[in-house]
Amino acid sequence: MLHQSTKAPGEAVAAPPPTGTVRLTINGQQRELQIAPWTTLLDALREYLDLTGTKKGCDHGQCGACTVLVNGKRINSCLTLAVMQEDAEITTIEGLGTQENLHPLQQAFIDHDAFQCGYCTPGQICSAQGLINEGKAHTEAEIRELMSGNICRCGAYTNILAAVKEVVDAKTA
């Protein structure tokens, strides 16, 4: 006899946590949610706010697909609770540019074919914007290293490097 439940026999099942109001500022807009503390920022975006541009690739901070910018800094939205991000300025891929008005990184990703399936792409682009905000990466080697928090299983890395490098260079030119 073997089981994997976190509940011991005879132990009562704890009730789900109560929900409360959580206020988030996303892409410049105030959004109000009725959620319990256990909702991650990633799930808040995808499941409650229909902002599905931010992707879930592992839910454990091991792939970078969920990268968003919080106060201009890139983070993994799967490893923070929505309730922890009240008062913060959150920027998702939807806040960077639109199909009609692409952000320079989005245009560079298209020009350099820096993606295939596209699933890691919003995270790559948000990460690249974070990299540019940080201002630490200039050479190819530095960009490679500081873009290494975003896995691309299709293997578009050389094109991602080219796209990011182009925008980094344009910023510093």
Partner: peptide
């Protein structure tokens, strides 16, 4: 030719299966 689905993919507008709410 650049991908015709590129703009949808780079803006997060492309809908994957678990994203039809």
């Amino acid at each position: 030719t650049s991908r015709v689905d590129g703009p949808a993919k780079v803006t997060g507008a492309a809908k994957y299966s678990a994203e039809f709410n």
